[in-house]
Nucleic acid binder design. Structure first.
Lengths: 183, 183
DNA sequence: GTCTATATGCCGATAGAC
DNA sequence: GTCTATCGGCATATAGAC
């Protein structure tokens, strides 16, 4: 079973990529399995050959979207980027509007509590990973209060800047949070 | 039209109260008009005598829930409470779990971007009101960066603490944000 | 204004042909 | 593995009796 299973993995990856972007942009309920499969160039019937349920897809898609967002975020930065450098990119105005590199941590934050443990576990793991990136990938097990505050200023700040219907306030929120991470 | 219209207003208030609590706890999509009307002791058919659509109900319910949460939050505090005092109550562990006084600003933050302008306007207005409370109800028109950071630490911190599936991390987030507001 | 009944549409999941 | 077709359920919104 050489190519066959490899081709299946590629198909699954295509579904996950489409799902990651759709879910991050629109949330769980506004995206149907039809939407995801159509975006992946397939039809609904093929879905259950790869995933057991929509919720299972969601959990995996969050991880996929987070990896993608993380790569796009850190790509132009140094190998051990400062929190300032991360914040400057993470809190840029394009991200609050519907930029290309949407962060599922910020855009799905309040959606997670409504889902099952599988989804919540995935989100929690990804959030911890981002916190460790902010902490400079130290080997320390504990996350410092300062790192957690920076995490909240980034993720929470981006989420609120996106929610708000007032561009000026949105910009002020991003600026204030960026400044707070630096200080 | 003395009592009649007054009785209608009371009925509408009962619907809004039920909707505010249900929406804040479960989000827009997981609450049906049936659920709201049943919680208000009515049936579905009566709904459209009071509201034009589910979205219109949502916008008004956010304001209702915010007023209720605000009253419960500030009730035992002094007339001009410090941000520290507000934060200590706002970021208490019961709120991150499903306490009684749920804050729609935190619990619905990422839900808002998917709705129409009516809803987003309501959310934005309520968020600005909370920011002004943090600023001590000054007459200043502008919100300072520090106030906005405190706002993000409170609302964003509570949202993330609720999302996460790890009680220890949840507690650390609340503590770190409370400490950050004070400092 | 409130009720019951219904029109209409969408979604998740399954069955069976190829 | 992927397709088409369909089951069963639930949602918003409307119509008409009282």
């Amino acid at each position: 079973m050489g190519w066959k299973s490899e081709h299946k993995q590629q198909t699954k990856a295509r579904i996950l990529s489409a799902a990651g972007q759709l879910f991050t942009r629109l949330g769980y309920e506004r995206v149907s399995i039809d939407d995801v499969m159509a975006a992946a160039g397939l039809t609904r019937g093929a879905f259950y050959a790869h995933f057991g349920s929509k919720s299972e897809l969601y959990a995996e898609a969050i991880v996929t979207a987070a990896i993608r967002a993380r790569n796009l975020l850190l790509e132009p930065l140094s190998e051990s980027p400062s929190v300032d450098a991360i914040a400057a990119r993470y809190l840029s105005p394009e991200r609050a509007r519907d930029g290309d590199a949407r962060c599922p941590l910020a855009f799905l934050a309040t959606d997670i509590h409504q889902r099952d443990d599988q989804v919540r576990d995935a989100y929690t793991r990804v959030l911890k990973g981002f916190a460790r990136t902010l902490a400079g990938n130290t080997t320390a097990v504990e996350l410092s209060p300062q790192t957690l505050r920076q995490l909240v200023l980034l993720v929470g700040g981006l989420a609120l800047a996106r929610a708000v219907n007032d561009p000026a306030l949105s910009q002020c929120l991003l600026d204030a949070c960026r400044q707070g991470v630096n200080g």
